[in-house]
């Protein structure tokens, strides 16, 4: 194993790609397509989904009922990705997503997880002291709002649909999407209108 770890990464990747092609498991074109899909996924896609849910009640209902099919209909490729669940924040309930076992993250809609999401500190504290944890982002929930921590332990991936901030009546979808940050869809922060 240590010999493997010392090997040049590019050489290793080249050997792996060669084997995938030689064994007929994945063509170079398929590998390139998957790389491109992975690179394209970013929090901007999640923000677009959130903004649409804020402005289109029918879309919102479908999104909450079946995240995978609903975002796929928006043109976000979900083939081969784990099913997507969407957690709706309300005035009474705020969601916070964590993966205590590793770093499961809804990559198809949010891209690569932020570094802190994978840290042992975040994973341990999210389930033990969620309010203290999000306070470090400056997030303090209003009195009367409960917090629900969602631990991604198995086959689903979860994203949060945050509350639409006050003072955004009449905003366009694009303007709303620009308000939504990565942390809002994990639940460590909440979107605010400037």
């Amino acid at each position: 194993m240590s010999a493997l770890l010392d090997t040049d990464g590019e050489a290793l990747l080249g050997a792996l790609r060669g084997l995938l092609a030689a064994k007929g498991l994945a063509t170079p074109a398929e590998v390139a397509e998957r790389l491109a899909l992975t690179e394209r996924a970013s929090p901007a896609q999640g923000a677009r989904i959130v903004a649409k849910a804020w402005t289109d009640p029918e879309f919102r209902a479908r999104l909450l009922a079946d995240g995978t099919a609903t975002v796929e209909a928006l043109g976000i490729p979900m083939r081969g990705a784990p099913p997507l669940g969407v957690l709706e924040n309300t005035a009474a309930l705020h969601h916070l997503v964590v993966c205590t076992l590793c770093s499961c993250y809804p990559r198809a809609v949010l891209g690569y997880p932020p570094f802190w999401f994978k840290s042992a500190g975040y994973r341990a504290r999210a389930v033990r002291d969620p309010r203290g944890l999000i306070a470090e982002w400056g997030t303090v929930l209003p009195a009367g709002t409960a917090i629900r921590v969602v631990d991604s332990t198995a086959d689903y991936r979860w994203m949060v649909l945050p509350l639409r901030p006050a003072g955004t009546d009449g905003w366009t979808e694009a303007a709303l999407a620009a308000l939504v940050r990565e942390g809002d869809m994990v639940g460590v922060t909440v979107p605010v209108a400037p």
Partner: peptide, 27 residues
């Protein structure tokens, strides 16, 4: 079968806060 199971924070931690809870995917 995979279930979403809800646990009260107070059922898991001695200093858990009443009303707060956790959702975990369990087989």
């Amino acid at each position: 079968a995979l279930y979403h199971v809800r646990f009260d924070e107070t059922a898991l931690w001695p200093d858990g806060r009443a009303g707060d809870d956790l959702l975990v995917e369990l087989f």
